[in-house]
């Protein structure tokens, strides 16, 4: 049989549980703020992501334009100049990879893509607004074919092996899985 001590605790339990239920179920300014807080937070995250995407697109637009018109050397120079303001920015690495690839510079292109993807995994997400899934896939497919053939001819060449490791890294990231 519960004694007085137990009864007191049982009553306390019921009262606190009831209070908690009331608190959660009754629309309170705090609850509204909590709900609003979630919305704000989600929106804030999205806004930040979009702002970042827009900022990158706007900042690197001259590089993209020069690349599109085939002025690769000028594009690289512009990228170098931007690198003074935004050193280590993965978007620069990705654009550099694309330019170098267009110039058939496989090794530095692959290394540049690797730096970019390590810096920001969004580039290998097919659905991301920053996605470079298609172009990185092409790098990997073509790279494995070309560099793979060279490795067969020169199996002891450590630089080719390094590029193969980079290509496998990109291939693995494109394949997905947990990070």
């Amino acid at each position: 049989m519960p004694d007085r001590f137990d009864m007191l605790h049982l009553v306390g339990l019921l009262v606190v549980a009831g209070g908690l239920l009331l608190l959660v179920l009754t629309p309170q300014p705090e609850a509204g703020a909590m709900h609003g807080g979630r919305l704000d937070r989600a929106m804030e995250k999205q806004m930040l992501a979009r702002a970042r995407t827009d900022f990158l697109k706007q900042t690197y637009a001259p590089v993209v334009d020069l690349t599109a018109s085939g002025e690769y050397a000028a594009a690289l120079l512009k990228l170098k100049e931007l690198g003074r303001e935004y050193p280590g920015e993965p978007h620069g690495d990705i654009l550099r990879g694309e330019i170098l690839l267009a110039q058939q510079a496989w090794q530095p292109a692959t290394a540049s893509f690797v730096r970019g993807v390590k810096g920001n995994g969004d580039y290998v997400d097919a659905k991301s607004p920053l996605s470079r899934y298609e172009s990185i896939s092409r790098v990997v497919d073509e790279g494995l074919r070309q560099v793979g053939a060279q490795v067969k001819q020169h199996p002891d060449n450590s630089s080719l092996q390094e590029t193969m490791r980079d290509l496998y890294y990109l291939q693995s990231r494109l394949a997905g899985g947990c990070e």
């Binding site: 002025e71 050397a73 000028a74 120079l77 512009k78 170098k80 100049e81 003074r84 110039q103």
Partner: peptide
């Protein structure tokens, strides 16, 4: 050299026309 000078801030990419560039 162009790259190094741009990185060091000695020149700006917009200062020059790059008329052509060789194969690597």
């Amino acid at each position: 050299d162009l790259e190094t000078m741009a990185a060091e801030g000695k020149i700006r990419a917009d200062d020059f026309n790059i008329i052509g560039q060789s194969r690597i």
